[in-house]
C-alpha cells in the first residue's frame, strides 16, 4: 500500500485553464523532488496534497484511505508539512516550539512524557540546535529558525513528509546536512516530497521528480527519465548545460554572452 496515491489529481491554480492531472504513487523510501519555475504551483501542489486547499479535481489517498475520510489529528500522524514561512511562536523557547510536533500523538488530557521530551532532544541535536533549546525563538537567525521547523517535523514523525523548500535560508553545509537527514529518514521507511529551487540538490538526492511547467503541463516519474537538459531548459525558460562530476550530473545555466552585450548596446538606458 502506498503512502500517498494521486488519481487524476488536478491542483487549483486560479486563472490557469488546463492543468494536467497528476497520477503518482509515493512509496516508503522514496524522495520526490518538485521542480518548476516561480508560480508554477509547487506550493499549491504541496498544500493540496496535505488537504489544506481543495483541488480542482481527482482524488488522493493516504495510506490507502481517501484524504477526506481522515480526521485532522490522525492525518497529521500520517502526513506532515514544512511551510515556506517559519511558523514558530516568537515568545516560546526552541524546545517548547519543537514540542508542538507531538500534538497529533497526544490525547487532549495527556501530558507530554519523558519519551516526548527525548524525541525533541534527538531532533534538535539532529539539526544542531541542542545548545539553543532553552532560548527564545526570537533569538534565532533565519537559518536556525528553518532548522527548528525541520526539527519540529522530525518530532511530528509522520509517515510522509511534505516540505516546501526545506533548504531556504540555509548555508551550503546546512543544506547538505538537511538533505542527508531527509535521505536517512527515507531509508528508515518514510516518504519524502519536497519543492526545491536547486536542480542540483534534486538530482543529487531525489529518487523521483515532478516537473511543473508554467503552462499547466507536468511530468512525473523516476529521476533518470526526467534528467534531460532540453526538458529542464524548457522548464525554467533558461538554457542549461549538463556537466558530469564524478559520474554525477550537474546542470549549470548558460549565460548568453553575445545576447547580453547586444541587448545592452541596443538598450536606450
Amino acid at each position: 500500500m502506498s503512502l500517498l496515491g494521486c488519481h487524476q489529481f488536478i491542483i487549483d491554480i486560479p486563472g490557469r485553464g488546463n492543468v494536467q492531472p497528476l497520477d503518482i504513487h509515493v512509496e516508503c523510501g522514496q524522495l520526490w523532488g518538485i521542480l518548476g519555475p516561480n508560480g508554477a504551483g509547487k506550493t499549491t501542489l504541496l498544500h493540496s496534497l496535505a488537504g489544506l486547499i481543495p483541488p480542482r479535481g481527482g482524488s488522493i489517498s493516504v495510506a490507502g484511505v481517501a484524504l477526506s475520510a481522515w480526521r485532522r489529528r490522525t492525518l497529521a500522524q500520517q502526513l506532515g508539512m514544512l511551510f515556506q514561512q517559519p511558523s514558530s511562536v516568537m515568545e516560546m523557547t526552541v524546545f517548547e516550539s519543537a514540542l508542538a510536533g507531538r500534538y497529533p500523538w497526544l490525547s487532549r488530557w495527556q501530558r507530554e512524557s519523558a519519551a516526548d521530551h527525548q524525541h525533541v532532544e534527538n531532533a534538535l541535536s539532529a539539526v544542531g540546535l541542542e545548545q539553543r533549546s532553552q532560548q527564545r525563538v526570537a533569538a534565532l537567525s533565519g537559518g536556525e529558525r528553518q532548522r527548528l521547523e525541520i526539527a519540529t517535523l522530525m518530532v511530528q514523525d509522520p509517515a510522509l513528509w511534505l516540505l516546501d523548500e526545506p533548504t531556504n535560508h540555509l548555508d551550503m553545509h546546512q543544506q547538505q546536512r538537511v538533505m542527508r537527514l531527509l535521505h536517512q529518514r527515507a531509508q528508515h521507511g518514510k516518504g519524502i516530497m519536497m519543492a526545491l529551487h536547486d536542480i542540483n540538490l534534486a538530482t543529487r538526492w531525489c529518487s523521483h521528480l515532478i516537473l511543473l511547467f508554467d503552462d499547466g503541463s507536468l511530468e512525473a516519474g523516476p529521476r533518470q527519465a526526467l534528467l534531460d537538459t532540453e526538458k529542464l531548459s524548457r522548464l525554467y525558460h533558461q538554457p542549461l548545460r549538463c556537466v558530469d562530476v564524478d559520474d554525477q550530473p550537474f546542470f549549470i545555466p548558460i549565460v548568453p554572452t553575445d545576447q547580453t552585450s547586444e541587448s545592452s548596446a541596443s538598450s536606450p538606458f
Binding site: G51, L52, A76, M81, W109
Partner: peptide, 23 residues
C-alpha cells in the same frame, strides 16, 4: 483547560495548525 495545547498550536497560524492536526 483541555484546549491549552491546541491554542499553542493554533498560535502558529491556521495552515500550520491544520497540518499538525487541529480542526
Amino acid at each position: 483547560s483541555p484546549w491549552g495545547r491546541t491554542l499553542n498550536v493554533l498560535a502558529r497560524g491556521p495552515l500550520q495548525a491544520a497540518a499538525l492536526g487541529v480542526a
